[in-house]
């Protein structure tokens, strides 16, 4: 679980923050409601997770709520890894 969190955190920082960004992302930072990830660019995050972990996340599970923090995303990934 910790590995997944670290990987997702690193991806989110690299993908969504600019070089001179003043914002910081931590494990519980609200990503979508906090305006860091918009629902439009959530798609690439989902695709990254699917490729990285060899899982399929149905659109019905890829909700803005489920993607709203690194912690929540890790829980979602674990669920499909176990499935």
């Amino acid at each position: 679980m910790e590995d997944i969190k670290e990987t997702v955190l690193e991806y989110v920082q690299d993908e969504y923050l600019e070089e001179d960004d003043d914002r910081e992302v931590e494990m519980d930072t609200p990503l979508i409601s906090g305006g860091i990830v918009d629902s439009f660019s959530m798609v690439s995050l989902k695709r990254f997770l699917e490729n990285k972990y060899g899982i399929q996340i149905p659109d019905s599970d890829a909700t803005p709520e489920a993607f709203d923090s690194v912690e929540k995303i890790a829980v979602l990934v674990e669920r499909f890894l176990d499935a």
Binding site: E18, F40, S41, V43, S44, R47, F48, N51
Partner: peptide, 25 residues
């Protein structure tokens, strides 16, 4: 893009390295 069924993705403004990563993905 919202009206189109194709998957949408984005790259950081004029960031060619980021674009290349997306093309590989």
């Amino acid at each position: 893009m919202r009206l189109c069924k194709a998957m949408n993705d984005s790259y950081k403004h004029s960031d060619m390295k980021h674009l290349e990563k997306k093309l590989i993905l």
